[in-house]
Design a protein around this nucleic acid. Sequence first.
DNA 1: GTATCAAACTTGTTTAAACAAGTTATCTTC
DNA 2: GAAGATAACTTGTTTAAACAAGTTTGATAC
Lengths: 244, 244
Amino acid sequence: MPKAKYEQLYHILKNKIESGEYPPHELLPSEHMLIAELNCSRNTLRRAVAELVRAGYVQTMQGKGMRNIFEPARQATFTLGTIESFAESAARNHWHGTSKILDFAKVTADDTLAHMTGFAPGTLLYYVWRLHYLNEHPLIMNHSYFRQDVAHGLTREIAEESIYRYLEGELHIHIINSKRVVTVEKATPLDLQYLAMGDCNCLAVVSSQTYNGDGVMFEYTQSRHHPDYFRFQDNAVRRSGSIV
Amino acid sequence: MPKAKYEQLYHILKNKIESGEYPPHELLPSEHMLIAELNCSRNTLRRAVAELVRAGYVQTMQGKGMRNIFEPARQATFTLGTIESFAESAARNHWHGTSKILDFAKVTADDTLAHMTGFAPGTLLYYVWRLHYLNEHPLIMNHSYFRQDVAHGLTREIAEESIYRYLEGELHIHIINSKRVVTVEKATPLDLQYLAMGDCNCLAVVSSQTYNGDGVMFEYTQSRHHPDYFRFQDNAVRRSGSIV
DNA sequence: GTATCAAACTTGTTTAAACAAGTTATCTTC
DNA sequence: GAAGATAACTTGTTTAAACAAGTTTGATAC
């Protein structure tokens, strides 16, 4: 449960939109009415609305109002490839997700690795090679590198369970920010061997750099996804000629 | 040039970060100092900073300050697949981009098309089939559908030039919002015929629904990208257990 | 009836103030 | 010197007010 008031308002409005309490493609009540209904200031309401805009739920129009542009996902939505961990995604969709560690090692970043990951050369790292299964099908292969000084004490046994539960629960690391790049790459022999690709010879690759609460990048992960089960959603807002 | 003050501040700070005036991985001046330097209120500054956070330039840390986490793109960055039009992307990167219309037609959305695009069945549409070249190489194939009542008067000749220039310049349509989904699909015979795929048999597909200033979806485009030249960037911010 | 203007809406931007909460440095106390 | 309290920072949240700007409604004049 979020403690900030604007986050609570965000979820209240989001739920009313998703449940259809606010009719699709119609205008929501005006700011004035929502303020009275939700008992908040205009600024706080507007902050909640700004997040709804960002998430693609409503669109505001100066002088007119805000329109509900939410549409329920049309297909059974596989929303992998987000900042959610695999365990979280699986739980949210009531899937049976399991993982297998293929390798766990301590490495030092050489120039090649440093260039690929963004860590400084010489950085001491944990390397974790994981395979994620969904309903017994191998769908995602992850190559992860964690800074040893941040993810202190990480072991193969912990990685078997959930790395993020250890980082957040035990080490109290706050994961704040994640820069991600999605590309499509030719499948390697390793991909073909482990991912049951069928006759596809390419896969979706999500490279992410993750920062902790101190602003230091502590994780680089290259996530190689079976193309049939990869789906990446985004909502872009354009205003006054500039793209955000 | 953005007229809003917070957008000006955003660009001022963004430029200082990109140019290295603020040292990488160091703290920026505090809000207090930036307010004095930029001659603005705290709220306006914080709005600019919030956009820098979203764009992945800085990371704020309560009690500590804001850290510059910008890193210049390491490889010569092909950043296609954004909300930018192909013409805009090409111009920004000083590339020679050309387009070819393969088909232009007026169609009516049947149930299948309606299901795929999100338009209501029976909607009158323009269909535009385009091929985009970068330095003479065919890289992107677009299947676009525009509502006839919104993109009124669109012709094949206009599409040869720039559709968005017509929509924004002539019809004064404000493009506000674009919902996008990235997937990886098996290449069709059409893809192989037009896109010079080499030995790849998959490609990146960006499906987008674009809304105008009235909140009506007026465009659906399926953009099929040559895998070697597809790159999609994103920055995710996670806070207090919820993902935004 | 029609056109025009004005009033009453709507959202967008900016400033100000106060308090909450997390971090760092300093000073005190032992 | 070490520990702990305190003061002085930092960013985070909330409220209030005023004005700007776009849209709709309705009254007025013709």
